[in-house]
Write a protein that binds this DNA or RNA. Structure first.
Lengths: 143, 143
DNA sequence: ATGGCTGCAAATAGTTTGCAATGAG
DNA sequence: CTCATTGCAAACTATTTGCAGCCAT
């Protein structure tokens, strides 16, 4: 679901349909991860997802969360972000956008396309095609 | 030094001066790392540095390589790049530039400033100032 | 002599993997 | 019943840390 209206949280059925549309079996655990992640645009770590789901009463293992996240990423349902070298984030906003990263707090904020745009792209190496552009604007506490 | 460029590889003395200018004690190991890293613009992982130095006959431990790289990074002598979530690269090109990352091969190529430029920057969060901008152009095998 | 560095090895943390058990259709 | 999926625990990998010994000053 590339553009979910930000106000509408997807129902269980919508998540199931989304997974099936990608050929992903809609198991209980995958649907739980989807419901959480696709509720709104957000960046979550694997640990945050596990904790959040368990607090919510879900029965899911660490391995399954990782398997699910990788599966989702392969199918373009989430985008993996490596801004902190010690942990990965999974971004449920798959529209074109970039990030502001506060290096002091670790906070990560989305920036929409109209606000940042590349003036030009370089020539790509022979035999390659564009897969995407990641832009991270690093900020620090002023002072 | 594994790859001695024919042109302007910094001499041992130049590296020592550089380190001292940053208040970094020019120990044997740090100078070796500097000679390797500052020989030309390049991205190296910690393992590549250890291996290269040891092949070259240096006596240096993994811990010292990491300590040294972090020290260099703190003083702006290298830039840490987290493009691959499993390992960090250290870029000895500290001038303003961005990267093309081949996700199939892992290859990382520098792109100079004139070729890529941001049209605009977003408003930064209250109380923060710009620390830097990272741009990674991801490419894949065409087809 | 002394204080900063270094090397070693153990610790840490995120992620992946092997495999038996489970469960949905 | 059957096959995909899960959970657990162990494995793995990159990086950090604790600490005793070493080295240059």
């Amino acid at each position: 679901m590339s553009a979910v209206p930000t106000t509408v949280s997807p129902s269980r059925e919508q998540v199931i349909q989304l997974l099936e549309s990608k050929g992903i079996g809609p198991t209980q655990q995958r649907v739980r991860v989807g419901e959480l992640l696709f509720a709104c645009d957000q960046h979550l770590t694997a640990d945050q997802i596990i904790e959040s789901l368990r607090v919510d009463g879900a029965r899911i293992s660490k391995a399954t969360v990782y398997n699910t996240l990788n599966l989702f990423a392969e199918h373009g349902l989430v985008r993996q972000i490596n801004v902190d070298s010690t942990r990965a984030c999974f971004d449920s906003n798959t529209r074109d956008h970039y990030h502001i990263h506060n290096v002091d707090t670790g906070e990560l904020v989305d920036v929409g396309l109209p606000q940042v745009r590349l003036e030009s792209l370089p020539n790509l190496p022979e035999g390659t095609e564009l897969a995407g552009v990641d832009i991270v604007i690093r900020v620090r506490r002023k002072g």
